[in-house]
Design a protein around this nucleic acid. Structure first.
Lengths: 154, 154
DNA sequence: CCTATATCATTCACTATCTGAATGATTCTT
DNA sequence: AAGAATCATTCAGATAGTGAATGATATAGG
């Protein structure tokens, strides 16, 4: 039965789709473990990231940018609030909305997340040697194509 | 309050860790949608991929390679079996084990998955233009560093 | 040989994560 | 002023995953 149909047994694993998906899962898992040390999960870090780049956003827009249901966002923000990372108060201009403020503690936690991610990046790209920088640039280009926030490199 | 602590608001989003994680999620979600058309989920495709590259593996090893609990693997294989993609029979040499055979139907489904992944890859890398091939090579290098199965390019 | 221990697949109870459909408050439109 | 739309929130349920038993089988030591 082998040699008759003779499939390319690496066709799937060879795609960038598969590799991105799998490496992304590895990256996120490591990130999750690292920031778990101070009580956060990747989605919490993502919320802080979006909020710092887009401070006056509504919870609806926040949920939309992160690709989750608004009902899930409530719980994520509840957690961040109880951790002292954000504060919510009704928008006086539109009392349906909440104005979300990232506190100093929130910024502190964000910086810790960014450091953890930077340290994991080193591990992930270690095997690339001097080609790591080129890979980073191309990856950032793809990220930008898909609307991910880009680093301010001014 | 702005300008006092003055955080780098793109520090996290700028890391390859964050970008890999997010793009990986996008890749997997698109892949999931595509292969959902013929009833599979990404983990099922992953199982077929591992099995085709490593046919005599035990369920334990399979679960270990995929980073899931053996108890989860049972359900994934039950599904693939009921879909006609694999067959299980007790290993006569060690009757605790199951010998897992990928059927013709399993190979057919695998090829469909590989095609879907290839087509999504084109979308993902479209913005890279002629630099896509370079990115693909670097990504494959990283994948190999982390033990992902590599395409046979003989 | 036979008893201990280990290993395999499987089941089961439980937890975590996420969604979509209500709900109530508020705002917008006309 | 009324009806439609929008916001945050709650809630019930779906889905995916884990770790701890369980029973069958295999292996190692005395």
């Amino acid at each position: 039965m082998k040699g008759v149909s003779d499939i390319d047994a690496g066709a799937l694993a060879g795609t960038a789709t598969f590799q991105l998906g799998t490496l992304g899962a590895i990256a996120t898992e490591r990130f999750s473990t690292a920031i778990g040390a101070f009580g956060l999960k990747p989605k919490h870090a993502g919320v802080l990231q979006v909020l710092l780049l887009d401070p006056l956003i509504s919870q609806q827009e926040l949920a939309h940018k992160m690709g989750v249901a608004p009902s899930l966002m409530v719980g994520l923000l509840d957690f961040l609030e109880s951790a002292g990372a954000i504060e919510r108060e009704r928008d006086p201009a539109d009392r349906r909305r909440q104005v979300i403020d990232v506190t100093d503690e929130g910024e502190r936690l964000y910086v810790l997340c960014a450091r953890a991610a930077a340290s994991i990046e080193v591990e992930l790209l270690a095997g690339l040697g001097e080609r790591a920088e080129g890979f980073r640039k191309l990856l950032a280009n793809v990220a930008e194509d898909f609307g991910l926030p880009t680093r301010d490199t001014r």
